[in-house]
């Protein structure tokens, strides 16, 4: 897996998160702060399970090693 592959994937994920943040903020007052706050919350919802899965994988990997 090369850096450009990660960049493409990150771009897609970023675009997706922006779409979801915009959608979630549509009934709120449009300020950068509220947008950023919602973006961070949605981003955490995506990142937390991924980090958890990576931790579990590493735990099992080193346990079996």
């Amino acid at each position: 897996m090369k850096i450009r592959h990660f960049l493409v994937a990150s771009l897609l994920i970023g675009m997706g998160l922006t779409c979801m943040t915009y959608s979630a903020n549509s009934f709120e007052r449009e300020t950068i702060m509220t947008f950023g706050k919602t973006f961070f919350q949605i981003g955490m919802m995506v990142i937390c399970p991924v980090v958890l899965l990576i931790c579990l994988y590493l735990m099992f990997y080193y346990k079996n090693k």
Binding site: L12, I13, G16, C19, M20, Y22, V46
Partner: peptide, 18 residues
């Protein structure tokens, strides 16, 4: 909802790519 679905689709596409 459509916008959120598009967002979820793009996130899934990025993750599936990896």
């Amino acid at each position: 909802l459509l916008l959120s679905a598009l967002g979820a689709f793009l996130v899934a596409l990025g993750m599936t790519f990896i």
